[in-house]
Design a protein around this nucleic acid. Sequence first.
DNA 1: GATTGGCACTCATCGACGCCGAGTGCCAAC
DNA 2: GTTGGCACTCGGCGTCGATGAGTGCCAATC
Lengths: 336, 336
Amino acid sequence: MLEERRLEVLRAIVEDFVLTNEPVGSKSLAERHSLGVSPATVRNDMAALEDEGYIAQPHTSAGRVPTDLGYRLFVDRLSSVKPLSVAERRAIESFLEGAVDLDDVVRRSVRLLAQITRQVAVVQYPTLSRSAVRHVEVVAMTPSRLLVVLITDKGRVEQRVVEVPTGVSDDDVADLRRLLGSALHGQRLVDVPARLAELPESVPPALRPHVSALLSVVLEVLVERPEERVALAGTANLTRSEPGLDFPFSLRPVLEALEEQVVLLRLLGHPADADTVTVRIGHENDVEGLKTTSVISAGYGFGGMGVLGPTRMDYPATMAAVRAVARYVGDLLGTS
Amino acid sequence: MLEERRLEVLRAIVEDFVLTNEPVGSKSLAERHSLGVSPATVRNDMAALEDEGYIAQPHTSAGRVPTDLGYRLFVDRLSSVKPLSVAERRAIESFLEGAVDLDDVVRRSVRLLAQITRQVAVVQYPTLSRSAVRHVEVVAMTPSRLLVVLITDKGRVEQRVVEVPTGVSDDDVADLRRLLGSALHGQRLVDVPARLAELPESVPPALRPHVSALLSVVLEVLVERPEERVALAGTANLTRSEPGLDFPFSLRPVLEALEEQVVLLRLLGHPADADTVTVRIGHENDVEGLKTTSVISAGYGFGGMGVLGPTRMDYPATMAAVRAVARYVGDLLGTS
DNA sequence: GATTGGCACTCATCGACGCCGAGTGCCAAC
DNA sequence: GTTGGCACTCGGCGTCGATGAGTGCCAATC
């Protein structure tokens, strides 16, 4: 009885605070939510919750505010992911179905996510590792510079210029193309390094130096430095001023963090599958400068996506949105 | 004598205001700059300058602040572009020379520009129109979906998926590839539409539908919707707090404007050559939401780049930086 | 033991008031 | 055309007190 109502009080505090952005007091709380007890009782519960670290007061004689720990408990035990409204679902579909392109899907997704959550959205471009090689192209830019282009079955294109030690003729290029093509075509990218390792032996000696130069680049592009990219949208939402301004206190570090691709990738983590929505709240975030923000992310099968906002956010709704978009994009790319 | 000193006063006002971010008064002005006249005289000049619209006072009994018009006069007649220091010049070189990639050059340029100007930087990815086709690739993803890849001599790669009405065999694909390749190879992109127009007639009837589908896509990609992209960096600089905070007044609209690729492209205009540095001050900017910002831009031969900041910025230094980076990047890409 | 009403206390917010000083405009004198 | 003098304006800042939401504690009640 006691334990149960305390949690109920916590939930009420979180909900009210998210709604109003003002410290919530015992009296208004007892009124707005039908807890069936008096403000005094609520005060006792609040004192206990504060002792346990779930809530805090900005200063004496102010209402309570959830701590990171409080939000954590809230998302873990007190909330369920809200299903999206039909309208929202339809919006997602219509927004994404016009995409012409892999990049376009990503760009539309970020914007969509930023728009429906009204937060900053981050979407990772599909990683290569799960796709298969559809085609390899080698083009001579100059006699000593070759452009290697890899096309994957998802339609992603990766390119890189390679300097080769000595000049190559057009025939050499054709040979190289055929060689790489037959070795790699249809291979899943994770398997590519193995295939490449056994390649040089079967190569005419004249081409060996070129092949090994190309190989090292291909390996670098695909494996060692899989230049992951992310798309970002909705930074203007950081300034959303609402009832009380959100976090004008320290926009600076947040913007700075968002400029770093590496940081963004770290934010998304390496999310396994879709359907697993990860929530990282405030200090749980190990990125300096984002200690006052929460990140909600999910995988879509070929990468991650998520949103970032103040710790004070509508977790159930945001989680629902992220999950829905991730699923939808995952399906879109999975069946293409 | 009269006219001349008035301009000198304006220059002093602009310089002081940019430095301190505080309205500048007659007394401190007469002290800090050796104008050789008394504060009272300066006041007379200021009254005249105010009548002419070059300066304004935020409220009675405050110092004067340059208006957009004042800055305009300053840039046009009162300032000369500061040469960069050797250290800065070296920084530019060392920062850019490690670039491995066309995209990498662009990404490094934006960051560099944002860093040395301490403003928001925008760099347009090189446009296609001046480059020539190095290679055309057609790959069948499924029997009814073809991926068209265009590689330009600058190493830029553009791709697009095309739905074709009926299935195509591998042989068809090879034919298409050869056909497009021979028609387009070496052509400058501006000339491509003309070449494509005369293509269908020389094509075996069986392939006609496919060819025309491909053509419409190629045209779209290259000409009608030359999907221009831009890179952005330094948004955190908008929050630079300095002596007095810069423009916390309305970060919102600025961030919103920066989210729109289209707006960014419009900002850069279609700058002719490098060396022409364009300055657009405050209301001269026709983008709503950026009426309180200035944009300094220059072309680098394959697109534009520039920085955006509060109207109160160090114009000579910023112009120098933009010009220097634009030149350097232009050279880099021009000779590659 | 949990709940409740009562009560004294704290403290941030807000408006009023007044002082200070930077800056101005004007004018008469040089 | 320039200068010094002078009265005036007005934003910024600190003080003060009233207000009120919210708290913690305690004794009474269920």
